[in-house]
């Protein structure tokens, strides 16, 4: 099935491999469709029989497609297409950026840079905030311990008034996220 006239370069090899895989997919599909579906049942109306044939045809085609899309040839083709798309997009981004800069405008890259700076700032704020929350929780825990300690050593009368104060659970605020 290989094209003997093609050159031996990598592009020609890829083309040959893909073509071979694709041809195999079609021949598998045709064999399956022919062997399974194209027999007309006796007690079926022509319309129903046609529908049955069509369903078999599609099922065989679908199976063949699935096998082809799992093949290494298809994956190689996908990789090459993706590489080409990324290169084209990068070139376009670069050209558009140069054009924008020439017109003294802000480019998408400039905006990305700005957004990253804002996000870094946001991250630093969040970290500091979390540290503060941790500190406050530590202070709150120590206060609770002190309060409990105090409560143990006080007279029952004083203990009753302490009960009226907020309980440690009530005072501890939920940790903000």
């Amino acid at each position: 099935m290989k094209d003997t006239t093609a050159t031996d370069g990598p592009a020609a090899k890829l083309f040959n491999d893909s073509a071979e895989a694709f041809t195999k997919m079609w021949s598998d599909f045709a064999t399956k469709a022919a062997s399974n579906g194209f027999t007309l049942p006796q007690n079926q109306s022509p319309a129903d029989a046609a529908k049955q044939m069509r369903d078999t045809f599609f099922a065989a085609w679908s199976d063949a497609c699935e096998r082809y899309m799992r093949s290494s040839e298809f994956q190689q083709m996908m990789r090459d297409t993706m590489k080409m798309a990324i290169e084209m997009r990068q070139q376009m981004n670069q050209q558009m950026g140069e054009m924008q800069h020439a017109m003294q405008g802000a480019t998408r890259q400039d905006m990305d840079h700005l957004m990253r700076s804002v996000e870094n700032l946001d991250g630093r704020f969040a970290e500091t905030y979390e540290q503060l929350v941790d500190c406050l929780e530590a202070v709150s825990t120590r206060l609770d311990d002190l309060e409990r300690h105090d409560h143990k050593h006080k007279m029952p009368k004083a203990g009753a008034s302490a009960k009226q104060k907020s309980s440690p659970k009530q005072r501890t605020k939920k940790k903000p996220l």
């Binding site: 994956q75 990789r79 993706m82 590489k83 990324i86």
Partner: peptide, 8 residues
């Protein structure tokens, strides 16, 4: 091997 997500 198939998808360069960083490049994309």
């Amino acid at each position: 091997d198939n998808f360069d997500v960083d490049g994309f």
